[in-house]
Design a protein around this nucleic acid. Structure first.
Lengths: 352, 352
DNA sequence: TCAGCGATAGAAAGCGCTTGCTACGGCGAT
DNA sequence: ATCGCCGTAGCAAGCGCTTTCTATCGCTGA
């Protein structure tokens, strides 16, 4: 029925061991023999049995990339870059073909753990965790335990856009400077003269949310506006709908808002929609800023002021780290800064 | 080192066979025994060895979802929905836990084939192919051969948003009515009074591109405008940059364009940017339409007229089909229609 | 009372591959 | 000319799990 190594060996008139070695290319095989084997493989249209080889070799060529929301370009871009880097890296060395797959957790801690277990089952070669983590003590502990087990089994673990938990068995971590970016963004607004700034945050329990918010708060506090931050912050999810709803809520709490900072660009888009529906012009009546600088942000009207994160580069680097193609940064951790992109969605507040 | 089935068996004082049966739940095991085994599994923190079990059982729990561009929400939404459906479906029956993974081909035929081989290696339970296919005779033949082999090995094959090639060994196919959608969109423009309509198409060799364009052409031809279509069509990729460039090119060819139809919403966004840079107002000076109705399309200004495709529903259905949870449509093929969403980016052409 | 059956549990034979170790020529060195 | 080594190839022992076939035991029905 299915062609096996033995069939190829028989056809090439060599032992199965030799065929295996030709295929893996990690043992000297005479050129003539190799050629004969390769021809047999071709003629028989042989396809290696992954599970069998993974079982015997106690390793597999699977690399898992975990994302919170695959429909969100923020993750799509990083995952695509990582997958690309992993695919390319393989081209370099013989037999190093890796199957990079992305797993969508939907932001659920349970699913995250489930996928990790599934990858552990498959004896994955590496795992890349992208995006913010959920800050629940129970989950953090469970994750630490799981990661330790994976690392212990030889799986490389790379974080991308996710802060490392001290003690985590991590190969490398690439984290975004969400705090710094958030601070600079709000400082920009403050410099323009804004004082009543609303903040549409993401889910309260995520690290990304917290860090961006902390940056905002730091800037506000430094400007002597710390007292109002709490009241002018509304939490939601990282999607447009949430931005829309939260903006309306913020406007209810404080009708005189002159600016709104959103957790990310998608949320900012929802915020803009709500504002416009209220008859407010951007940026004449109210300024809006986002975060991430997703591809569409430069094209919307008015173009969004935001913090650009080098998502593609970070993803690609994470991919290489997962492949072991790139040396990890000192102490395994690298922080990637964001760049403030001032565009037309922010301006001076209206005099009143 | 690693805990194996035998360890669990020893601890539970039963045979490995029994442990296996408890874990797979497809053989009667006395409640007391089962409990003892489960306890041992828990105490030992045992994790099944995927490759070993796949080898022995000759099947695996991997399901591959192939997408052209993971950074594009069009694919992200479908893939997310499919992955969700597959994950949920598993919850239903015991032991049915599937690992749905998405593979990013980047639109490259070779990568598509490579991933299929890798999935074949892993003895994947099912494969979902999303998005348009490349129409190259050689590639089509190679794909057909590969799919036949996969199907032959028991892998379920589902197409989502991809037209089936007659003779393909497909389990089921969900295709979008790109032709009909394209036609209705252009008809809408025609009804508004437009006559000089530019078309920014996707890559020429993709089925999706061809079908949408055919719909456009059919509408134009029916209106007696078929002669100009060729000249007023510019091909590019499915991204914003392409929409931007192609729009400029179209304007060069025909400065008096009153409307532009884009291959999809992302491209339309790029087109809008180019138009605005040229000082043209939308829709007063020129109308713009997209396709897909991605989440951001309703939020941009002006809101985009487009054709809504039920991406989430289609992806979810594809996922269920891949799981074998849903019965395939008659003859395996179902066509999913698009809904014309008329919004503010299209209007009557200016009188001149 | 005893054959016979249903419900469970175990023994053991692989699944297809990798790899440590052994075997075997031919060659340069002594 | 002899020894030993290098370059190759084969042998065979698993890797950890599933599953068929067999064994056992407590009952039930005649």
């Amino acid at each position: 029925m299915t062609v096996t190594l033995a069939d190829v060996a028989a056809r090439a008139r060599v032992s199965p061991a030799t065929v295996s070695r030709v295929l893996n290319g990690n043992y000297p095989v005479a050129a003539s023999t190799r050629e004969r084997v390769l021809r047999a493989v071709d003629e028989l249209d042989y396809v290696l049995n992954g599970p069998a080889s993974a079982l015997a070799a106690a390793t597999s060529d699977l690399v898992g990339i975990l994302v919170n929301d695959i429909a969100d370009p923020f993750f799509g871009i990083m995952a695509g870059a990582a997958q690309h880097a992993i695919g390319e890296g393989a081209a370099g060395r013989a037999g190093g073909e890796k199957l990079a797959v992305v797993c969508n957790t939907g932001g659920s801690p349970e699913r995250e753990l489930t996928y990790l277990t599934l990858l552990q089952r498959q004896r994955a070669a590496a795992v890349v965790l992208t995006g913010g983590a959920v800050e629940d003590p129970g989950h953090t502990a469970a994750m630490a335990a799981k990661l330790a087990k994976l690392a212990n089994a030889g799986t490389r673990i790379v974080l991308c856009g996710r802060p490392p938990v001290p003690g985590d068995a991590i190969t490398a971590a690439l984290t975004f400077d969400n705090r710094g970016g958030g601070r600079r963004l709000t400082e920009h607004l403050l410099t323009l003269g804004h004082r009543r700034i609303g903040y549409v945050a993401g889910p309260a329990e995520r690290t990304t949310t917290r860090h961006r918010l902390e940056g905002h708060r730091a800037a506000m506090t430094a400007a002597g506006l710390g007292g109002d931050v709490e009241r002018l912050t509304a939490h939601g999810t990282y999607d447009r709908r949430s931005g829309y709803d939260a903006t309306l809520e913020l406007l209810r709490r404080e009708p005189d808002l002159t600016a709104i900072v959103a957790a990310n660009d998608t949320v900012a888009l929802g915020a803009c929609a709500a504002l416009r529906e209220r008859g407010l012009r951007i940026p004449q009546d109210i300024s809006v800023a986002g975060f991430d600088d997703l591809p569409f942000s430069v094209d919307v009207v008015p173009a969004l002021t935001t913090v650009r994160l080098p998502l593609y580069e970070a993803g690609a680097r994470a991919g290489r780290l997962a492949m072991g193609t790139e040396v990890p940064p000192p102490r395994g951790i690298a922080t990637i800064g964001g760049e403030l992109m001032v565009r037309s969605s922010t301006g001076r507040p209206r005099q009143r």
